[in-house]
Computed example of a mutant assay.
Amino acid sequence: MECIKRVDPQKWKEVPLLAELYHNLPTTLRCSTVKNSTLFRKKTDRANTYAYVGYNPPNITRYIVLDLDYCDALFAYYDNNAPLPQFIIRNPENGHCHYVYQLKDPVTFYGRSRSAPIRLLTATEQALTALLNADRGFTGYLAKNALNCNHDTYITGVKPYTLNELSQNLDLESIENPSVAMNDHTYGRNSGTFDAVRVQAYKIAGKLNYTELYNECLSLAESYNNRYDKPMSYNEVKGIAKSIAGYCKSQAYIRSLSELQARKGSKGGKVSKRKPVATSERTTKPWVDLGISQSTYYRRKRKSDSR
């Protein structure tokens, strides 16, 4: 059995893996002291005072977090021949655990993000959820804080995975071709809502200021979210709307839009440009044979045509 080591969360600064975890937490921390409320606080050295945190911002996934909502979940990875997570955070009262898998290359959910990594991320998380019998409705919006002493924190020393490494021995075929709809769970809801709303936002972004655009995105996101059997929390929906509106008003988006319009204009000009006609005056250049300039030739021609 692989070696896992219990560490003291209060001494997280002295544990390199926990210090790295803290460094990777979002600058604006989604956090809470209890399960059923959410606070937004600037990340400080007091991040360990919150029992629950959000490990990922709305538009980036660096950590896959699974909720093993059953007793004796500490060694579930061994019992199910699953990949070893980087962190295991255990409830000391009932043995329930959160498994935290760290990705070497974070997956982004920006407007220009590639869809292939998002699809692989979704399939990988769903496969891990099925393999470990984790809670299918858990979104990872708030999870047990590995830096907080209310929980037992274990580290494994496993290096961060690439998505390909993590998914290598998982049964993705049944996930990619599910017998039941999978889009009501985890990243399916998040990425599905994000993709649907961002497409609509791009169409109206230039006509609205940030507040107006955010409100439109929030309304659209709420509408899509209400279609799911298990809707996301309101704060998660707000996070999606904020991410899209912020990107659409960012300098990066404005630059990309200008570049796109320039490419379209260049392409349009090239397509519409009239090809040379062999018998035209512009091709035969009769003013050369007459020994006069082009402007003189056309000036005389206009006078002649006007008679």
Rank of each mutant, 00 (worst) to 15 (best):
K267M: 12
L166E: 06
R114P: 00
K273N: 07
L84M: 15
G95P: 03
L172I: 06
S191Y: 14
N225C: 08
Y298A: 04
E236A: 15
A130R: 12
D135Q: 06
T122S: 11
Y161N: 09
A146S: 10
L147D: 02
G246A: 11
F87N: 02
P286Y: 03
Q102H: 05
Y154N: 05
A51E: 09
A241W: 03
L208E: 07
E165I: 01
Y141I: 11
K301M: 13
I204F: 07
G269R: 15
Y297R: 03
K207Y: 12
Q251A: 14
P117E: 10
P58N: 10
Q168A: 15
Q251H: 08
E20K: 11
G188Y: 04
L68K: 02
K35Y: 10
T153N: 02
Y70G: 07
P85T: 07
V288H: 02
A73W: 04
G137E: 06
T186D: 01
D72Q: 14
A82Y: 02
G157A: 07
R300K: 14
L257Y: 15
D184H: 15
E259R: 13
T156M: 07
N235F: 09
S258E: 14
I254H: 12
A241C: 09
R274E: 13
E93W: 00
S293Q: 03
P106Q: 06
D8T: 02
N56V: 12
Q261N: 14
K303T: 08
G291I: 06
R282T: 04
L218P: 01
G192H: 06
F87I: 02
V277C: 05
K35F: 08
L257E: 15
N209H: 07
V180I: 14
R302M: 06
P117A: 08
A241K: 04
C217S: 09
N80G: 00
P276L: 05
A146V: 04
T139C: 09
L103C: 07
R112F: 15
Y224I: 06
H185G: 00
R112K: 13
R90W: 00
R46Y: 11
K230C: 01
T296C: 02
N133G: 04
I254R: 14
T38M: 12
A116N: 09
Y141M: 05
R46G: 12
R302N: 06
C217A: 10
S306K: 12
T139D: 06
D171G: 05
N80R: 15
A47F: 00
N215T: 05
E125Y: 04
R114M: 10
L260S: 14
S233I: 10
L147Q: 03
L120V: 03
L74P: 05
